[in-house]
Amino acid sequence: MQAPKTETKQPLLSVRNLGVAYKTAQGPVHAVSNISFDLAENEVFGIAGESGCGKSTLIRSLLRLLPDSATVSADACLYRGQDLMGLPDARFRKDILWSEISLVPQSAMASFNPVYRVGDQIIESIRAHKSVSKAEARERCKALFDVVGLEAGLLDSFPHEFSGGMRQRAMIAMALSLDPGLIVMDEPTTGLDVLVQERILRRIREIRSEIKSSIILITHDIAVIAEMSDRIAIMYGGEFMEQASAVDLFEQPYHPYTLGLKNAFPSIRNIGAELISIPGSPPTLIGPLQSCPFAPRCPFAVAACRSANPEIVGLEGGQHQVRCVRHADAVGFREQAKEKAVWQF
């Protein structure tokens, strides 16, 4: 595999060949396999994919939030040069989790304890990792609430007194509370109204210049990922199908799945454009992959796609990574994929 072009600085997080398998009655399910990426300082890395593609499993494996039935393997998982794989759970929880890698979960509603004040919960999480006085922690909370655009007075409110958008912002404040190097956001605005979503995402973009954290953003919403990310990976069947800068990925996609997703996603700028769905349904991932996971749904699949799982190829000087046998034909596919008939095979 071709290494991505290394910048002068060492990446914040460097993952090589990460895989997660779940034990089930039907045999091991390889929910995530062959994941490699580098995350630079202060970068927003978007991972887009549909339900069951493994994106949640991937980030939970980074945060060690998986159930016991899951086994994680990786050639390397370096955070600031430190190998996370070898770290005992207790050390990981104390030194890394929340203080270095924090999480904004999908349902902020369920993530606050309903019987405690929101402010107290954030203070609690600060004091669990840092020896500061209550007053200092409270000051920090006030500053954080200011950053995410909430009034300091709300610190003394209970979670149920918050609207959905306010709760999500409070969750972001909590994730920021220890100045982590990396914030993982799992569908941070899914289920929120569009005006509220816009405001939260705008806020996240604005604070990127103030905080130094990198962000991994996972969502199924391609529009949100396009708007927020510097770099994007498209995930399918537990693997990255394509990984490139946001602009390259949208303007020069190589993988047929990326092309299919773009066709299927409506844009308000282009209403009336025909939407084309991808036939079939995602793979079950029982047993290791013997072919390209997308091959059964791909209009451009050939025999080679079905005989082996393709390797990642680095294009455009290694910056644009694609897992597709037919990447050389992509220029032609970009036009063909716009035809609905092509997808009805």
Binding site: V194, A226, A246, F250
Partner: peptide, 9 residues
């Protein structure tokens, strides 16, 4: 406020 699937917009 509707997001658009275009990284340049």
């Amino acid at each position: 406020a509707v997001p658009v699937p275009d990284p340049r917009s």
